[in-house]
Design a protein around this nucleic acid. Structure first.
Lengths: 159, 159
DNA sequence: CTCGCTGCAAAGCCTTTGCATTCGC
DNA sequence: GCGAATGCAAAGGCTTTGCAGCGAG
């Protein structure tokens, strides 16, 4: 697996130790590619495969993996830090979050490459990354809402 | 001031009480229009003007003001919840965050109105909101980085 | 053998909650 | 006066830290 070799050589380059814990944390993200995991979810998934790694180590490993470019942090406004495996090509994608049930849908393409350049010109920043989230109602929750408002209309008419 | 009247009528409509605390919290956001305040910053600014309102009430008021559409929550990935006064016209804007010093720059225009419609078609969600942050280096921090890398080159040459 | 890494428990933050008291209406 | 809102302090989550012991190189 290419990614574990990358991890090892990255660690050597920085004179850091190659440990089973660091590989195990990365492996959870590899197995859950495309998912947005909280540190606690990583902990749970490791526990299920009988790898009991302490929370402290999980936080430290995730931080390191983010710094080395394997993970990116995402934020859905629910107060939890989430991370996902970074795409090899640095290709960005966006998220659509249902404000009702929390379901998250990923949009695979990057709609913003050109916009980044516009922003650089306008602000004189050097832009390295961006995060775009859309919030709204997923089809199921929208259907439920419509159902409920019909019912309340019926109740009013019955009175 | 139009906005306080809006607050009062909103509160009446919901049979909630008009309290000095709720008006004071809103007033902080009005005075700091365009800034992105944490609950703690709101607390401090109120304290400076001798309005000692408990943190609990600040959290509760902010939550209510957000629900009533006066504030929007923003997230810069630093683990803190921030809020800003919502633009009257529902006009969105975006943020550019310096990953080094935390400086935040606001982009006044909404670059994404059309994209929201594309996303709705593609996902079948009903999109109600979005948040877009750019991350990078501000001019000052970039200059400092360049300075530092020049110095380290000089050091290498001197060896 | 050395120094970085881990695990544990404690500490730190920010945020929420329970409850007695206060205060709109 | 009634019920909602506030303030206080305590409790709750998530995350970070200090430190002794372990383990990679």
């Amino acid at each position: 697996m290419r990614i574990y070799e990358r991890l090892r050589s990255e660690l050597k380059m920085r004179s850091l130790r190659i440990t089973s814990q660091r590989e195990a944390v990365l492996s959870i993200f590899v197995e859950n590619n495309g998912k947005h995991l909280t540190p606690d979810e990583v902990y749970e998934r490791l526990a299920h495969r009988n790898s009991h790694i302490s929370k402290a180590t999980i936080y430290r490993s995730i931080e390191l993996l983010e710094e080395m470019g394997f993970l990116s942090k995402i934020n859905f406004g629910d107060g939890l830090e989430r991370y996902e495996l970074k795409n090899e090509h640095g290709h960005q994608h966006h998220h659509v979050v249902c404000t009702e049930c929390g379901q998250i849908y990923a949009l695979e393409e990057d709609l913003l490459d050109d916009i980044e350049k516009i922003v650089e010109k306008r602000t004189n920043f050097t832009i390295t990354d961006h995060q775009l989230n859309f919030y709204g109602l997923c089809p199921k929750c929208r259907a439920r809402h419509e159902e409920e408002s019909k019912e309340s209309q019926v109740q009013k008419l019955q009175k």
